[in-house]
């Protein structure tokens, strides 16, 4: 909670990186609610279907880095597909959401992922999110199954609840971390237009003073697995406290 507050008060301050995310998945899986929980820290009641694409943003802190996230929340309904498809372009990260109480939404994931891979930049980091984890009784998609699917398709996986706010920050942070790692490894260049990532003023100043970027705490933790584990250890704690 304390961390969150600190973030909020520093919102207007500078950031190191700016990343564009796109939130995708079938209609009614709770994409907008997830985003609302992430940006407003509260559950969005009586949420309507999203019309086309909606925008919001939030700055998060990852280690020493402050990262501004530009979040594009897309409509899941089929009829908006032609509109939403245009928003993959220039996204650095995609949050792919399904509903654990709705098998159909899980079965359609491949189609969404294919879209994302085809339309977005090749460095797109995808995080699979099984939403509505608070409704364990109605679960139709097992964690293990989704996890296997994620591993097969080389995406990260988490379960969240946008109702309780449980684990809601994790996918966004996980995604940011992966993107930072690809920047560090040189496969992603924030200086290039259309990469979905760019330097903020803060990073610029740092770069000006020392010619080479360094990622401090991130160095030496190249393995995705470790990152994932660490995040998982870390994030539920914050999420829990946020509930109180």
């Amino acid at each position: 909670m304390a961390d969150y507050d600190a973030d909020a008060t520093e919102l207007l301050e500078t950031y190191d990186f700016l990343m564009k995310y796109i939130i995708i998945g079938e209609a009614g899986t709770g994409k907008s609610c997830l985003l609302h929980q992430f940006t407003h820290n509260s559950f969005k009641d009586h949420s309507q279907h999203t019309i086309g694409v909606e925008f919001s943003s939030r700055t998060v802190k990852l280690g020493e880095k402050r990262i501004k996230l530009q979040l594009w929340d897309t409509a899941g309904q089929e009829r908006f597909r032609s509109v939403t498809r245009s928003y993959y372009r220039g996204a650095a990260g995609a949050i792919l959401v399904y509903d654990i109480t709705n098998r159909q939404s899980f079965q359609n994931l491949s189609r969404w992922l294919a879209d994302a891979r085809a339309l977005a930049s090749p460095n797109l980091v995808v995080v699979l999110v099984g939403n509505k984890s608070d409704r364990e009784d109605e679960r139709e998609v097992e964690w293990a199954e989704a996890s296997r699917w994620a591993a097969e398709h080389d995406v990260h996986f988490l379960e969240t609840s946008s109702l309780t706010g449980d684990n809601v920050e994790a996918p966004f942070l996980l995604c940011a971390r992966s993107i930072l790692l690809s920047i560090e490894s040189g496969s992603l260049d924030p200086d290039k237009a259309g990469s979905g990532v760019s330097y903020g003023d803060r990073a610029l100043r740092r770069v000006n003073s020392s010619s080479r970027l360094s990622f401090g705490s991130l160095s030496g933790r190249r393995k995705k697995g470790t990152v994932k584990l660490r995040l998982k250890d870390y994030v539920p704690g914050t999420a829990n406290s946020e509930c109180c």
Partner: peptide, 17 residues
């Protein structure tokens, strides 16, 4: 700014204090 950067619509779109 200080070095040559390719232009990006939202690159460096940030106001210093």
């Amino acid at each position: 700014r200080d070095w040559e950067r390719s232009v990006d619509p939202d690159a460096n779109l940030e106001a210093s204090p």
